[in-house]
Design a protein around this nucleic acid. Structure first.
Lengths: 225, 225
DNA sequence: ATATATTTTTAGGGTAATCTAAATTTTTTA
DNA sequence: TAAAAAATTTAGATTACCCTAAAAATATAT
């Protein structure tokens, strides 16, 4: 069994988490530039860090070829994601933060190292399966099963779906959803779709109706009833 | 009004916290060597950091003269202490950690920057006034009033006192107290004191009795009933 | 009061993570 | 497929924090 207990820095953990998220379910190669954008650093800095992560056996890296996580890197990334999402649940459920307010704080809390802390936090929260944005929380063994949500753009007219999550976590978007009474678990019925710009007329919880742009539809994760 | 919102690093915050604790209630000068010992670094490194903290207006520093916190430095230190103690309450009261297990984790959590987080955590915990070791928690305005506890060595024979806190936070000491059923709030009656080594025979909660060494007595904070 | 011991500071470096600018490799396009 | 464009890497610095060794200041002791 390979040890996952080595110490990774705050910065290394962030790279791993971002590589995980950018490489998606299929584990595609992630480019240096994409990482530079996501880490808000310069490509040259990314190259330096990639060499380091490769030396530690956390990524597969060949010059000019992009990177993928190794199994070890994946484990570390998933641990960080688990911590991030559990802390988000804590902040929303226990401390009363809004779902638009918790990202930056969880970004800090996710790097607190204690394993036993994570497990006790998980138990305290009642082993939640999803975070406040609908993202699945990896279990303590590191199993992360992404539910196969639809995007609202894939829903046909007069279908009713359950709102399950968001792709964009930006506060401005989440606040817009709050103002529109679109919350996790609400029922969305697509009443009309405008052919020209794909904006839609939807009904929320069989009650109020509103227009939403394609940009909004693209960022709403839903499930058929 | 002077801003206290500038960003201080993890390391800077630790120095301020340690200076606060070493300079005591009277705000005595703290020596470079004492700081080197408490920060587990070399005296030369301490000198570097002291120059930096002085430039930021956080400490009063004259070469070879030792340091004191400025009002600003005191404010920052007290904020860190507030966070540390609130997180310790959370870890013990909500997550079920023992009082001997929480120090290192709180040492990390205390540097999470959000002010809102601290205030919401404080409210969630019910505005506790003391941490799990009996140390007072500064209020949101930064007022820290150290209660005037006695040390058990100052208690006379046949006096009954209330156990209020510990001076030594070492896990080994706290575990010894657990095994001896000495907990915050228990009643301690001094039955006998050995003239030679000042070890004492005490009764806990009017129930079981035990011998404790001077070393133990020196680290128990108590209050007359 | 002067020599000795201790404490503290300075000088000169090292590492992690970042940067800019230049060089190199890969990709795209004509 | 060769030239141009884009992406990536290398080279050389910078900042924060830490180090060792040596110098300087202060404290102690005879």
């Amino acid at each position: 069994m390979v040890s996952t207990d080595m110490q990774n820095s705050f910065t290394e953990e962030n790279y791993l988490k971002i590589i995980h998220s950018l490489s998606g379910r299929e584990g595609l190669e992630v480019s240096t530039n994409a990482l530079a954008e996501s880490t808000a650093t310069r490509a040259a800095s990314v190259t330096d860090m990639l060499r380091k992560l490769a030396e530690k056996g956390l990524i597969h890296y060949k010059k000019y070829q992009g990177v993928r996580l190794t199994d070890l890197g994946e484990k570390v990334a998933i641990k960080v994601i688990r911590k991030h999402r559990l802390w988000e649940v804590f902040l929303v459920e226990k401390l009363g933060f809004g779902w638009d307010e918790v990202h930056d704080i969880a970004e800090e809390l996710e790097h607190i190292p204690s394993e036993v802390l994570v497990e006790k936090l998980d138990a305290f929260l009642g082993h939640p399966r999803f975070d406040p944005h609908g993202d699945p929380i990896p279990d303590s063994k590191g199993n992360l099963t992404e539910p196969d949500y639809l995007i609202l753009t894939d829903v046909h007219i007069s279908e009713k779906v359950l709102m399950m999550g968001v792709l964009d976590h930006a506060p401005a978007f989440l606040q817009y959803l709050d103002r529109s009474n679109i919350t996790l678990g609400c029922i969305i019925e697509v009443k009309e779709i405008n052919d020209y710009d794909k904006s839609a007329f939807v009904q929320i919880n069989d009650a109020h109706t509103l227009f939403i742009s394609l940009e909004v539809s693209k960022n709403l994760l839903v499930q058929r009833l």
